[in-house]
Protein backbone atom coordinates (compact mmCIF):
# COMPACT_ATOMS: atom_id res chain seq x y z
CA UNK A 1 0.00 0.00 0.00
CA UNK A 2 1.41 3.44 -0.91
CA UNK A 3 1.61 6.30 1.57
CA UNK A 4 -1.32 8.02 -0.16
CA UNK A 5 -3.47 4.87 -0.19
CA UNK A 6 -2.98 4.41 3.55
CA UNK A 7 -3.67 8.10 4.11
CA UNK A 8 -6.85 8.05 2.00
CA UNK A 9 -8.18 4.90 3.67
CA UNK A 10 -7.72 6.39 7.14
CA UNK A 11 -9.37 9.73 6.29
CA UNK A 12 -12.93 8.43 6.47
CA UNK A 13 -12.43 5.19 8.40
CA UNK A 14 -14.98 5.02 11.22
CA UNK A 15 -12.44 3.50 13.66
CA UNK A 16 -10.52 6.81 13.57
CA UNK A 17 -7.20 4.96 13.40
CA UNK A 18 -4.40 6.96 11.68
CA UNK A 19 -2.18 5.44 8.97
CA UNK A 20 0.54 3.28 10.56
CA UNK A 21 3.25 5.81 9.82
CA UNK A 22 1.57 8.43 12.05
CA UNK A 23 0.32 6.07 14.78
CA UNK A 24 1.56 7.04 18.21
CA UNK A 25 3.53 10.06 17.01
CA UNK A 26 1.27 12.35 14.98
CA UNK A 27 -2.28 11.22 15.66
CA UNK A 28 -3.62 14.68 16.51
CA UNK A 29 -1.90 16.03 13.43
CA UNK A 30 -3.47 13.42 11.19
CA UNK A 31 -6.83 14.07 12.85
CA UNK A 32 -6.77 17.63 11.47
CA UNK A 33 -7.05 16.19 7.97
CA UNK A 34 -9.77 13.73 8.95
CA UNK A 35 -11.71 16.54 10.58
CA UNK A 36 -11.26 18.92 7.62
CA UNK A 37 -12.55 16.30 5.20
CA UNK A 38 -15.65 15.38 7.19
CA UNK A 39 -16.52 18.92 8.33
CA UNK A 40 -16.03 20.27 4.80
CA UNK A 41 -18.26 17.66 3.21
CA UNK A 42 -20.96 17.94 5.88
CA UNK A 43 -20.91 21.71 5.43
CA UNK A 44 -21.41 21.24 1.70
CA UNK A 45 -24.51 19.16 2.44
CA UNK A 46 -25.80 21.74 4.94
CA UNK A 47 -25.48 24.40 2.27
CA UNK A 48 -27.33 22.31 -0.26
CA UNK A 49 -30.12 21.08 2.08
CA UNK A 50 -31.06 23.99 4.38
CA UNK A 51 -34.71 22.91 4.71
CA UNK A 52 -33.66 19.43 5.87
CA UNK A 53 -31.38 21.07 8.44
CA UNK A 54 -34.28 23.13 9.70
CA UNK A 55 -36.66 20.12 9.83
CA UNK A 56 -34.17 17.76 11.50
CA UNK A 57 -32.12 20.14 13.60
CA UNK A 58 -28.40 20.67 13.12
CA UNK A 59 -27.24 17.80 15.33
CA UNK A 60 -29.45 15.15 13.73
CA UNK A 61 -28.68 16.42 10.24
CA UNK A 62 -24.93 16.31 10.85
CA UNK A 63 -25.07 12.78 12.22
CA UNK A 64 -27.05 11.66 9.18
CA UNK A 65 -24.75 13.60 6.81
CA UNK A 66 -21.74 11.84 8.33
CA UNK A 67 -23.23 8.41 7.65
CA UNK A 68 -24.28 9.49 4.17
CA UNK A 69 -20.80 10.80 3.37
CA UNK A 70 -19.20 7.53 4.44
CA UNK A 71 -21.63 5.59 2.26
CA UNK A 72 -21.57 7.98 -0.72
CA UNK A 73 -18.37 10.04 -0.73
CA UNK A 74 -18.28 12.55 -3.58
CA UNK A 75 -16.55 11.27 -6.69
CA UNK A 76 -16.25 14.66 -8.38
CA UNK A 77 -14.47 17.82 -7.25
CA UNK A 78 -17.55 19.75 -8.40
CA UNK A 79 -19.51 19.61 -5.15
CA UNK A 80 -22.68 21.12 -6.56
CA UNK A 81 -23.78 17.56 -7.35
CA UNK A 82 -22.69 16.07 -3.99
CA UNK A 83 -25.77 14.74 -2.22
CA UNK A 84 -27.67 13.61 -5.31
CA UNK A 85 -28.15 10.21 -3.58
CA UNK A 86 -29.41 11.75 -0.34
CA UNK A 87 -33.16 11.31 -1.04
CA UNK A 88 -32.78 7.55 -1.49
CA UNK A 89 -30.44 7.37 1.48
CA UNK A 90 -32.96 9.14 3.73
CA UNK A 91 -35.68 6.82 2.46
CA UNK A 92 -33.73 3.92 3.99
CA UNK A 93 -32.39 5.76 7.05
CA UNK A 94 -34.10 4.17 10.05
CA UNK A 95 -33.76 7.03 12.55
CA UNK A 96 -35.76 9.23 10.13
CA UNK A 97 -38.49 6.75 9.30
CA UNK A 98 -41.12 8.70 11.24
CA UNK A 99 -40.67 11.54 8.74
CA UNK A 100 -41.33 9.76 5.44
CA UNK A 101 -41.66 13.08 3.58
CA UNK A 102 -37.97 13.96 4.08
CA UNK A 103 -36.85 12.25 0.87
CA UNK A 104 -39.21 14.43 -1.16
CA UNK A 105 -38.02 17.56 0.65
CA UNK A 106 -34.49 16.54 -0.33
CA UNK A 107 -35.64 16.13 -3.94
CA UNK A 108 -36.94 19.69 -3.94
CA UNK A 109 -33.64 20.98 -2.56
CA UNK A 110 -31.70 19.08 -5.23
CA UNK A 111 -33.95 20.55 -7.92
CA UNK A 112 -33.32 24.01 -6.48
CA UNK A 113 -29.53 23.78 -6.70
CA UNK A 114 -29.78 22.33 -10.20
CA UNK A 115 -32.05 25.22 -11.19
CA UNK A 116 -29.62 27.68 -9.61
CA UNK A 117 -26.80 26.45 -11.84
CA UNK A 118 -28.89 25.59 -14.91
CA UNK A 119 -27.95 26.96 -18.32
CA UNK A 120 -29.18 30.41 -19.31
CA UNK A 121 -31.46 29.31 -22.14
CA UNK A 122 -33.95 31.86 -23.54
CA UNK A 123 -37.60 31.12 -22.71
CA UNK A 124 -40.57 31.31 -25.01
CA UNK A 125 -42.81 34.29 -24.37
CA UNK A 126 -46.59 34.13 -24.66
CA UNK A 127 -46.49 35.27 -28.30
CA UNK A 128 -44.66 32.08 -29.24
CA UNK A 129 -47.90 30.20 -28.65
CA UNK A 130 -49.95 32.30 -31.06
CA UNK A 131 -49.31 29.77 -33.83
CA UNK A 132 -50.99 27.03 -31.86
CA UNK A 133 -54.15 25.83 -33.53
CA UNK A 134 -56.51 23.00 -32.67
CA UNK A 135 -55.07 21.07 -35.62
CA UNK A 136 -51.39 21.27 -34.62
CA UNK A 137 -51.98 21.23 -30.85
CA UNK A 138 -52.15 17.44 -30.61
CA UNK A 139 -48.71 16.70 -32.04
CA UNK A 140 -46.88 19.55 -30.38
CA UNK A 141 -43.69 18.79 -28.47
CA UNK A 142 -42.52 21.14 -25.75
CA UNK A 143 -38.93 21.47 -24.49
CA UNK A 144 -38.93 22.58 -20.88
CA UNK A 145 -36.29 24.97 -19.56
CA UNK A 146 -33.35 23.17 -17.86
CA UNK A 147 -34.15 25.02 -14.60
CA UNK A 148 -37.66 23.52 -14.48
CA UNK A 149 -38.43 20.55 -12.25
CA UNK A 150 -41.61 19.02 -10.90
CA UNK A 151 -41.66 17.09 -7.64
CA UNK A 152 -44.77 15.32 -6.48
CA UNK A 153 -45.22 13.53 -3.23
CA UNK A 154 -47.63 11.33 -1.31
CA UNK A 155 -47.26 13.94 1.42
CA UNK A 156 -48.29 17.62 1.71
CA UNK A 157 -44.85 18.63 0.54
CA UNK A 158 -45.67 22.23 -0.35
CA UNK A 159 -47.18 22.92 3.06
CA UNK A 160 -44.21 21.29 4.82
CA UNK A 161 -41.73 23.31 2.74
CA UNK A 162 -43.63 26.56 3.27
CA UNK A 163 -43.77 26.07 7.03
CA UNK A 164 -40.12 25.05 7.33
CA UNK A 165 -39.13 28.07 5.21
CA UNK A 166 -41.22 30.53 7.23
CA UNK A 167 -43.54 31.31 4.30
CA UNK A 168 -46.50 29.98 6.31
CA UNK A 169 -46.98 29.87 10.07
CA UNK A 170 -46.11 26.44 11.46
CA UNK A 171 -49.20 24.48 12.46
CA UNK A 172 -50.39 20.89 12.64
CA UNK A 173 -51.31 19.63 9.17
CA UNK A 174 -54.83 18.27 9.59
CA UNK A 175 -55.59 17.31 6.00
CA UNK A 176 -52.62 15.11 4.98
CA UNK A 177 -52.94 15.08 1.15
CA UNK A 178 -50.49 14.49 -1.70
CA UNK A 179 -49.02 17.72 -3.05
CA UNK A 180 -46.69 18.72 -5.87
CA UNK A 181 -44.36 21.65 -6.45
CA UNK A 182 -42.80 23.42 -9.41
CA UNK A 183 -39.15 24.53 -9.20
CA UNK A 184 -38.18 27.23 -11.67
CA UNK A 185 -35.67 30.05 -12.12
CA UNK A 186 -37.35 32.84 -14.08
CA UNK A 187 -34.27 35.06 -13.82
CA UNK A 188 -31.50 34.41 -11.28
CA UNK A 189 -33.61 33.58 -8.22
CA UNK A 190 -34.93 30.05 -7.84
CA UNK A 191 -38.64 29.93 -7.07
CA UNK A 192 -40.78 27.08 -5.73
CA UNK A 193 -44.55 27.11 -5.96
CA UNK A 194 -47.37 24.61 -5.52
CA UNK A 195 -48.87 22.72 -8.45
CA UNK A 196 -52.04 20.70 -8.74
CA UNK A 197 -51.46 16.97 -9.20
CA UNK A 198 -52.84 17.23 -12.73
CA UNK A 199 -50.55 20.09 -13.73
CA UNK A 200 -47.57 18.25 -12.21
CA UNK A 201 -48.27 15.06 -14.18
CA UNK A 202 -48.91 17.07 -17.34
CA UNK A 203 -45.62 18.99 -17.11
CA UNK A 204 -43.78 15.79 -16.30
CA UNK A 205 -45.23 14.11 -19.39
CA UNK A 206 -44.18 17.06 -21.54
CA UNK A 207 -40.71 16.95 -20.02
CA UNK A 208 -40.52 13.24 -20.89
CA UNK A 209 -41.22 14.09 -24.54
CA UNK A 210 -44.93 13.22 -24.80
CA UNK A 211 -46.81 15.23 -27.44
CA UNK A 212 -49.08 17.85 -25.89
CA UNK A 213 -52.38 16.30 -26.94
CA UNK A 214 -51.42 12.83 -25.74
CA UNK A 215 -50.11 14.15 -22.43
CA UNK A 216 -53.40 16.02 -21.86
CA UNK A 217 -55.51 12.96 -22.65
CA UNK A 218 -53.46 10.63 -20.44
CA UNK A 219 -53.48 12.96 -17.44
CA UNK A 220 -57.24 13.52 -17.81
CA UNK A 221 -57.75 9.74 -17.58
CA UNK A 222 -55.74 9.52 -14.34
CA UNK A 223 -56.91 12.76 -12.76
CA UNK A 224 -60.66 13.29 -13.24
CA UNK A 225 -60.60 16.98 -12.29
CA UNK A 226 -57.55 17.78 -14.47
CA UNK A 227 -57.81 21.40 -15.56
CA UNK A 228 -55.99 21.60 -18.91
CA UNK A 229 -56.47 25.36 -19.47
CA UNK A 230 -54.99 26.05 -16.02
CA UNK A 231 -52.03 23.73 -16.71
CA UNK A 232 -51.41 25.45 -20.07
CA UNK A 233 -51.62 28.82 -18.32
CA UNK A 234 -48.83 27.68 -16.00
CA UNK A 235 -46.74 26.39 -18.91
CA UNK A 236 -47.14 29.61 -20.88
CA UNK A 237 -47.45 32.18 -18.10
CA UNK A 238 -44.47 30.90 -16.09
CA UNK A 239 -42.36 30.71 -19.23
CA UNK A 240 -41.46 27.05 -18.68
CA UNK A 241 -40.76 26.20 -22.33
CA UNK A 242 -37.74 26.94 -24.48
CA UNK A 243 -39.01 25.49 -27.76
CA UNK A 244 -42.23 24.28 -29.39
CA UNK A 245 -41.82 21.85 -32.23
CA UNK A 246 -43.24 18.82 -33.96
CA UNK A 247 -41.42 15.63 -34.84
CA UNK A 248 -38.84 16.54 -37.41
CA UNK A 249 -38.63 20.28 -36.91
CA UNK A 250 -39.93 23.63 -35.78
CA UNK A 251 -43.45 24.87 -36.36
CA UNK A 252 -44.14 25.72 -39.99
Amino acid sequence: MTALSAFAAALTAPDRRPPPEFAGRAERRFAVYRNNVMVGLIRALETRFPVLVSLLGEEFFRAMAREFTRAHPPSSPVLMSFGDELPDFIGGFEPAEEMPYLADVARIEIARTRAYHAADVPRLGTDAYSELTPSNFEAMLIDLHPAVAVIHSHHPIWTILAMASGWQPAAAIEDWQPQAVLVNRPDLDVLVRPLTTGAALFLEALGAGRPLGIAATEVAQDVPDFDLPAALATLIGDGLATRIHVFGGDLP
Binding site: S5, L11, L79
Partner: peptide, 14 residues
Amino acid sequence: SSHGEAFFNDLLPL
Protein backbone atom coordinates in the same frame (compact mmCIF):
# COMPACT_ATOMS: atom_id res chain seq x y z
CA SER B 1 -7.59 15.77 -3.03
CA SER B 2 -8.81 12.65 -4.84
CA HIS B 3 -7.81 9.02 -4.44
CA GLY B 4 -9.48 6.04 -6.07
CA GLU B 5 -13.12 6.96 -6.58
CA ALA B 6 -13.32 9.47 -3.74
CA PHE B 7 -12.90 13.25 -3.67
CA PHE B 8 -11.92 14.46 -0.18
CA ASN B 9 -12.48 18.21 -0.58
CA ASP B 10 -9.22 19.01 1.21
CA LEU B 11 -5.64 19.78 0.17
CA LEU B 12 -3.71 16.74 1.36
CA PRO B 13 0.05 16.33 1.81
CA LEU B 14 2.41 14.10 -0.12
